[in-house]
């Protein structure tokens, strides 16, 4: 199939491994799904210390389950990405460990305190939900299919995050102040979650033409702000003065882009941001430390004469 045919036929779940897709499509889809899978893993890595630091057994269980779900989503998404025949899961995981794999801006920042957890588990996951819901209509069928399960579980994560936020914002004055402070720190990053505006987005046009992306960055960001500004306010959070945000007459939102640190964003996008590198390397060290186990498994799983080891659990 050539690119023009792909554009013509692009619609939700239009293409599957049974179709002969052009390389340009396969590469674009791989990049997008790999980014998504990597983000699941690095999000889980960021949140894992809070399994331990959760202030009740219920919260601990929920955090452990959430981190586990995210690893499960990663597994599912790498499979969907592999189905494009461009990269294997091992190559993608190696790239992630070696600082070549890209992932969401928010997961490059360190998280130090429990009061920060709803910034990820409510706001970032809520933002992710917005985007993921639209990806159930992406043109690569295995990706759309993975999104069905991911969205279902993600719904619970957002509720869990919302419940943590509600507890903190009805707790002591100290808890409320600490939470507001965390919100102010994370709010600009959360807005940047959707990436640069459409006119500055590198990959937007092609992805949208072939039906991989069904909504633009601007549309998604507007939808998020419309839903989450009132939610934040309902829990007693004050929206910071910057970045300045204005509702247009048509119900979309204008953000003063100069109020956001786009230099930092692009530094992060290149995996050059120091705290993010710390997380990438921390995870790499953990992965390297158990390389011996993977070696043992490979050795065990290679039947004589076979070229490629099978996946082991």
């Amino acid at each position: 199939m050539d690119v023009d045919t792909v554009k013509e036929r692009a619609e939700p779940r239009a293409f599957s491994p049974a179709d002969d897709m052009p390389e340009e499509y396969r590469r674009a889809a791989t990049r997008m799904i790999e980014f998504h899978a990597n983000s699941e893993i690095m999000g889980a890595y960021l949140e894992r210390p809070f399994i331990r630091q959760a202030p009740s057994i219920d919260r601990k269980l929920a955090f452990s389950a959430k981190v586990q779900d995210e690893i499960g989503h990663g597994q599912l998404l790498y499979r969907a990405a592999e189905s494009l025949g461009v990269k294997t899961r091992e190559e993608m995981l190696d790239d992630l460990a070696n600082g070549k794999g890209k992932f969401l801006n928010c997961f490059h920042y360190p998280m130090d305190s429990w009061v920060e957890t709803p910034m990820i588990a409510f706001f970032v996951d809520g933002a992710a939900m917005r985007r993921q819901a639209t990806l159930r209509r992406t043109s690569w069928e295995p990706y759309a299919h993975a999104m069905d399960k991911v969205c279902f579980e993600e719904g619970f994560h957002v509720k869990h995050g919302e419940s943590i936020l509600a507890t903190l914002m009805t707790g002591s004055k100290k808890e409320q102040e600490m939470t507001q402070e965390a919100f102010e720190k994370w709010w600009p990053r959360i807005i940047q979650f959707f990436g640069p505006t459409d006119d500055k987005s590198t990959h937007h046009d092609f992805s949208s033409d072939v039906g991989l992306k069904t909504k633009s960055n601007d549309e998604l960001r507007s939808m998020f702000l419309r839903e989450y500004i009132p939610k934040a306010e309902r829990y007693g959070l004050e929206i910071p003065d910057e970045p300045r945000i204005r509702e247009r007459d048509d119900g979309t939102y204008e953000v003063v882009e100069d109020d956001l640190d786009w230099d930092e964003f692009f530094q992060i996008a290149k995996n050059d941001y120091e705290p993010g590198l710390g997380q990438i390397n921390g995870r790499k060290a953990a992965q390297d430390a158990v390389q011996w186990v993977r070696d043992t498994l490979e050795w065990e799983n290679v039947p004589e004469g076979s070229a490629k080891p099978q996946a082991a659990d």
């Binding site: 893993i41 889980a44 890595y45 894992r48 399994i51 331990r52 057994i57 601990k60 269980l61 452990s64 389950a65 981190v67 586990q68 690893i71 499960g72 990663g74 597994q75 790498y78 995870r283 953990a286 992965q287 430390a289 158990v290 186990v293 993977r294 498994l297 996946a311 082991a312 659990d313």
Partner: peptide
Amino acid sequence: YTEWQVRAPTLESDLALSNNAQDELG
């Protein structure tokens, strides 16, 4: 056990040990 979450040798063993951790917590 939860120390192994996101640090286990493979995604599959990660999921399995997380299950154990949650069982024991329960």
